[in-house]
Write a protein that binds this DNA or RNA. Structure first.
Lengths: 213, 213, 213, 213
DNA sequence: CATGAATGAGCTTTCATTCAT
DNA sequence: TATGAATGAAAGCTCATTCAT
């Protein structure tokens, strides 16, 4: 039994290694530009060996994206529960995004390269979408709670606000080259921008008529 | 002389045709997935003829992006001048983005595919960056003006707010598949989201202590 | 116009060259074992150039087979008309097969490698089958005529006899390695076997009660 | 000793299993299209285990072919002895082929795929050829006997007739797609064709001057 | 100026075979 | 003995780019 599990562990390890290498490369160059050869070299395996672990390039990509979405969902769920009211929940969720990005920056590629033309048949895409929806629902819930308990502005739409929140955070975490350029021009660091954005979000959604922060 | 200029005009025409076809295709399928063959067919030219007008595929992409950035800058500049104070200028600039997106949707690809790994040598990238910077500066200026004249919240950083504004608008105009999915789940239309986002931005940056909108 | 036709001729020439090389290789090694690379080398073209002339390997194979079937049909048709009665027509058709084989031996591969797993969709296969059927019908007709005019045995089935005739001729023209071995063992040449087979066929189908050959 | 022989029996068993699976697959899809993986799966063994029993794919093929040739030879030998004169022997041999084909259809692949480019070095090919020659010699002998005893036409060449006989039978048992198509066109069944061919053969070789069948 | 033709480099993927365990 | 893992070699095919006309 120990033998089996060792082998399995090793196999799982290899799989993870492949995913790590692929993540890194996808992140650096984008899905299309990365070749199976590069992934193989990065993993120090033969190109053909990759096909023992993944059916094709798409599956590698999907595995990474799925994993990332799962981790994010987990972090979001935990943080959601830590908030005592709607506003706090929004704060905690926002920080959850930051935490995810900081600890697993590579997974962020998922947002950028989600454009990949998957064979629609893939049932795995459904899995992915399910998880992402579950994550998003948390944000909506937090908004709804805050609207109900009066910690957030009561005239806002929870869904639309959730969409805006997600957009903002993703953008500020995963900067485009142009944005980077603007930041350099004005000497702004990434951390500064992140902090500012968090403040901006909170200020924009909280019920300033009620709370005095 | 007239002959020369006619020829030149025709040449310019062809160039534009190529760019139009390419824009459309890049927009539909993404830079990587578009082949020179497709661009040629769309333009009704031979594949090799494209190379008389552009050094390679990258240059076509760059030309489109540059053109789009120029148009955007122009619209922003015009609208900037229409605003009487900082807040109005921010409003006008926000609407300028919408206008640009509505009238030249194809150029929006630029944001998404800006990731294309250009040979750093390209001097054309500098041109592009220059124009984009000029556009961005306008937004910063508007914020500064509003902060100075008291129509915008005085404790905000004009540059960081400009970055957030740009991000938000771009994201809300050019939706990711995931965002689209969330919108479908909750039955939200694109126009609704755009309107909501504009309101959100204005509300977030204006000096609510002073103005009563 | 001459320019166009020259170019077209040259293009047609290349196509033929490719087909010739492919024929030779298919004949020598069998469809599966022949690579596009080999065909390219044999034709002194780049591998990718082949794809300008044929969509894929299957199409090359089909083109050869189709061409061969067309030539055979033509020869059969001509010879069919030369025979004055059924028996003579059978003789002429038999000789037509020999002639075809002698002049275009490579096309004989068609019989052997017809097993190739074509995508059923191919409409070209229908074309091929049509021509082959037309050829076969000629043989059936000849038998029917001979049965009717009494030069062939009257108690035979024209279709089944036609099937046997075709089989025999094809086999004797295109020898399997085992058959070759047997021939070597007994010191029999290919021409001897062909002659003997022709005699055998005629003797077997003719009306010996009537004719005195 | 019993232990050893049990082991040996088991080993022999495995070998046979592999051959059975391979036969089936070769028959269905052709040598080239069958992968070692498929053979392994069909046998419920690991891919690499096949290599303990056979040096490579070719050897599997050869083993099947050899086995088939041995069985055929045996059946031919038995039937040869049952015939009382040359004509009867030819009849019995013809029926032997049919019997072999009916009972061991899979082995028939041997004829079709004999084209496989074996490394000439193989000594096993000599074994195969020896057996096939022995089978063929039987047919020749039967013809010779019939010629000598007057039951077969006396002016025929025993070897050449034997070659024709073999060809005819093999072809009629193992139909090409084209032949199948012709048969469908005219609504002829395989059994009908087989029966007709047997009659045809007998009628063609027997001494009609002497016998009155 | 325009193009048809050609190509080299590179892609994803398959598969027979080897080898350490 | 049996196998899972690994791999090299090769396959078919695509595409941006070049070049002679």
């Amino acid at each position: 039994m120990t033998i089996i599990s060792r082998k399995q562990r090793e196999k799982e390890m290899r799989r993870r290694n492949i995913l790590q290498s692929a993540e890194k490369l996808f992140y650096q160059k984008g899905y299309e530009k990365v070749t199976m050869n590069e992934i193989a070299q990065e993993t120090e395996l033969a190109r053909s060996t990759l096909y023992l672990y993944f059916k094709n390039k798409e599956e590698i990509y999907l595995a990474i994206t799925l994993k990332g979405s799962e981790i994010l969902k987990e972090i979001l769920t935990k943080n959601f529960e830590k908030g005592q009211n709607g506003l706090e929940k929004i704060e905690m969720l926002t920080k959850a995004f930051i935490k995810f990005y900081t600890e697993y920056p590579l997974y962020y590629l998922s947002r950028f390269y989600y454009q990949v033309p998957f064979n629609q048949e893939y049932q795995k895409i459904d899995d992915l979408n399910k998880i992402r929806t579950e994550s998003f629902v948390l944000v909506v819930k937090a908004f709804q709670e805050g609207i109900d308990d009066g910690t957030l502005q009561t005239d806002q739409d929870p869904v639309k606000s959730a969409l805006i929140l997600s957009s903002l955070i993703q953008n500020v975490l995963n900067l485009t080259p142009t944005t980077k350029m603007h930041m350099e021009t004005y000497g702004i660091t990434h951390d500064e921008l992140i902090d500012y954005t968090i403040d901006f979000i909170i200020k924009s959604v909280q019920n300033y008529k009620k709370t005095n922060r």
